[in-house]
């Protein structure tokens, strides 16, 4: 089964991408990526640019409503996603717990809807 991990990061996490903590930050993520690939469970994934770069679009009565910023103003924001091929939810939760963002932000695990 495929599971998507929605990686929700804090403001500090986003800052750590470029500030003095950046080396440790990226080293942890690279190692995490390597572990998933090494275990043969990684399908795909991407990191996203900062929430401030987001633009939200809604159609209201046929009119475009374009809004600057992410769709919801929350403490943690979507920072990336990963799709894994795993036998069970329990295995997906194990991988989510190992995600560097799990200790600071949150990782939501969702089964991918098979079409």
């Amino acid at each position: 089964m495929q599971y998507m991990m929605l990686i929700c990061e804090t403001e500090d996490d986003f800052k750590a991408r470029t500030n003095e903590k950046k080396e440790m930050f990226w080293a942890a993520w690279r190692a995490y990526h390597e572990a998933m690939v090494g275990a043969g469970v990684y399908i795909t994934g991407s990191a996203l640019q900062a929430p401030s770069t987001g633009t939200t679009v809604r159609l209201k009565g046929g009119k475009r409503l374009v809004q600057d910023g992410p769709f919801a103003d929350t403490k943690e924001q979507l920072g990336g996603f990963i799709i894994l091929e795993l036998p069970s939810l329990d295995a997906a939760l194990d991988w989510a717990a190992r995600c560097p963002a799990a200790a600071t932000g949150a990782v939501e695990v969702r089964p991918v809807l098979a079409m």
């Binding site: 942890a28 390597e34 090494g38 560097p100």
Partner: peptide, 21 residues
């Protein structure tokens, strides 16, 4: 280094992750 990376990537405890890094 490769083995360290696998161990770091599989760590759940962030203190252990920092130690291995």
């Amino acid at each position: 280094t490769q083995a360290y990376n696998r161990a770091i990537g599989l760590s759940e405890d962030s203190a252990v992750r920092q130690f291995l890094l």
